[in-house]
Computed example of a mutant assay.
Amino acid sequence: MTPLELTHLAAGEKSAPVTDWAARIGWLVGLALFIALVYWLMREGWKWRGTLQGDLPELPTSPEEHGEAKLAVLSMSGRYHGSTTAGQWLDRIVAHGLGTRSRVELTLTEAGLEVVRPGATDFFIPAGALREALLGKGIAGKVLSEGGLLVVTWAHGDRLIDSGFRSDHAAEHAEWVDTLNSMINKSLETTDTEGAR
């Protein structure tokens, strides 16, 4: 290589730029603060929604009755995906822990539907409060395949609520819908017969 070629080669080589650690650290701190702000806003929004739904009565608890009313008609293990205002699958209800997703053990008895949630508030839906059961595909924040969600509509206070459940064995959903709707129709017929007397 000639000296002229070496000069051109040396002129073309440049040292790697020096890392500006202060700028990098500044960007990382800024990003961390932005993420913390977004998380805080989401948390405040959740609390605000709970405050708006403060008129919702306390959730009923399982009756202490024994005998036939406590005999399980059906039981299921799975996941509780949340509750919404009936017919409005994006209007999540968060008051009294209804917005908390969790594992669930459902037990249907003649008295109603017992919802046991480890790590979240348990509640009970009396048989007289049950309105409808159907197979759905979504509820606020969770979308599944068609029929992948058991949606139970029930009355609580002056509201109708849809609660979404998914069994560990999705094939059970159809039996639950049939049994719940049969129980609801039987309850309505009994109410109509008593009202006619």
Score class of each variant (00 low, 15 high):
residue 80 Y to V: 01
residue 81 H to A: 09
residue 81 H to F: 14
residue 81 H to T: 06
residue 82 G to F: 08
residue 84 T to F: 11
residue 85 T to L: 15
residue 85 T to N: 08
residue 87 G to E: 12
residue 88 Q to M: 10
residue 88 Q to E: 13
residue 88 Q to T: 09
residue 89 W to K: 08
residue 89 W to Y: 06
residue 89 W to A: 08
residue 90 L to T: 13
residue 90 L to S: 10
residue 92 R to G: 02
residue 92 R to C: 01
residue 92 R to A: 11
residue 93 I to L: 15
residue 94 V to G: 05
residue 94 V to A: 08
residue 95 A to K: 13
residue 96 H to K: 15
residue 96 H to A: 08
residue 98 L to P: 02
residue 99 G to P: 07
residue 99 G to V: 05
residue 100 T to E: 08
residue 101 R to D: 07
residue 101 R to W: 03
residue 103 R to W: 01
residue 103 R to K: 06
residue 105 E to T: 01
residue 106 L to F: 06
residue 106 L to S: 08
residue 107 T to D: 00
residue 113 L to F: 06
residue 114 E to N: 05
residue 115 V to E: 01
residue 116 V to N: 01
residue 117 R to H: 02
residue 117 R to W: 00
residue 117 R to M: 00
residue 117 R to Y: 00
residue 117 R to I: 00
residue 117 R to A: 00
residue 117 R to F: 00
residue 117 R to N: 01
residue 120 A to W: 04
residue 123 F to E: 00
residue 124 F to E: 02
residue 125 I to N: 03
residue 125 I to S: 03
residue 126 P to T: 08
residue 128 G to Y: 05
residue 129 A to V: 04
residue 129 A to M: 09
residue 130 L to W: 01
residue 131 R to Q: 14
residue 132 E to P: 01
residue 133 A to Y: 04
residue 135 L to S: 11
residue 135 L to K: 15
residue 135 L to F: 02
residue 136 G to Y: 10
residue 137 K to M: 05
residue 137 K to E: 13
residue 138 G to N: 11
residue 139 I to Q: 09
residue 140 A to Q: 09
residue 141 G to M: 12
residue 142 K to T: 15
residue 142 K to N: 09
residue 143 V to A: 14
residue 143 V to T: 15
residue 143 V to W: 11
residue 144 L to W: 05
residue 144 L to C: 06
residue 146 E to F: 07
residue 146 E to A: 11
residue 147 G to S: 12
residue 147 G to A: 10
residue 149 L to I: 15
residue 151 V to M: 14
residue 156 H to P: 01
residue 157 G to C: 07
residue 160 L to I: 12
residue 161 I to H: 10
residue 161 I to C: 14
residue 164 G to R: 07
residue 164 G to H: 06
residue 165 F to Q: 04
residue 166 R to M: 13
residue 167 S to I: 13
residue 167 S to Y: 02
residue 167 S to M: 11
residue 168 D to A: 10
residue 169 H to C: 01
